[in-house]
Design a protein around this nucleic acid. Structure first.
Lengths: 144, 144
DNA sequence: AAAATTAAGGACATAATAGTCTCTTTTTTA
DNA sequence: TAAAAAAGAGACTATTATGTCCTTAATTTT
């Protein structure tokens, strides 16, 4: 569904957001530990999130990553997905046809469409706040 | 979503089914041409479908592939997906956690679940007949 | 029986994804 | 100002997915 990089990006963003809520920056090392991901690889995807303006990075001692804006409800998961994987999750034909669309549909098109639409809506509707709250309350987890 | 191999497998199965309906076997060459897929690679996935008992292969002149049973409505797309990709499409955690479940959910678990469930239901409900009929009537396409 | 046709199987090749390593840059702290 | 702490960047490696090639086996046709 999502690439590994995207999975790490979402998990990292949730952790960064929870730290930002407490006025703390999250260092790469902390992030990799808390989401149980390979450090160097995670660094790459965080750079992409940073270039996309979703998070802000600060170098030097006590540097690290923080969310780019205070309002976590305005950062949608879709922004992360688009930044890392692009829009292919929503747009790609389920049977791999190049030019599958309403006028030239693959046999599975009409049946698959609702699934894709639902995924798109949920990802666009869900904010970073929605996902951090469960983490903070201890109801959800970022690793294992 | 599905692997390339699985996409080819579903498209191939639809073509094979449409040929079987007319009492014809589909040769690998015909299949690869009609679904616009790499011949040798497609051969591999057809072998898997054959070993899974979804299609039957016959060697020699006028050999080829045909569906294993007459009742196309009893062959579900889920069988093809399971045969090629396994059940990970339905079961894998959207954020990549090993042990994500109701008791130990990732932050996205509850939101993602309906998407996964809908996909599973649709794939389990849709039969090879459902998908061949549109092809035969010229309303849907297997390539480009 | 020989030749032709077709799938099966295994070894190999290529591409995409995932992941690592090392050096550089920026910032803070001593 | 020097050292330490952190991210940035690029080259490199590893793994997996995708795809090809060649030989073999089975079947049919001549």
């Amino acid at each position: 569904m999502f690439s590994k990089a995207c999975e790490y990006a979402i998990r990292a963003a949730i952790f960064i957001a929870s730290e930002s809520e407490n006025g703390r920056r999250a260092s790469l090392k902390d992030i990799a530990r808390e989401i149980d991901s390979p450090e160097a690889f995670t660094a790459k995807t965080l750079q992409k999130l940073s270039r996309s303006g979703i998070i802000i990075s600060t170098k030097g001692a006590h540097g690290g990553f923080q969310v780019a804006r205070e309002e976590l409800e305005n950062i949608k998961i879709s922004q992360i997905v688009i930044a890392i994987d692009g829009d292919k999750v929503y747009t790609r034909c389920s049977l791999g046809l190049q030019a599958c669309n309403e006028d030239h549909p693959c046999p599975f098109h009409s049946r698959f469409k609702p699934v894709r639409t639902e995924l798109k809506e949920i990802v666009e509707k869900t904010s970073l706040r929605d996902l951090t709250s469960g983490l903070v309350s201890g109801d959800t987890f970022l690793k294992i």
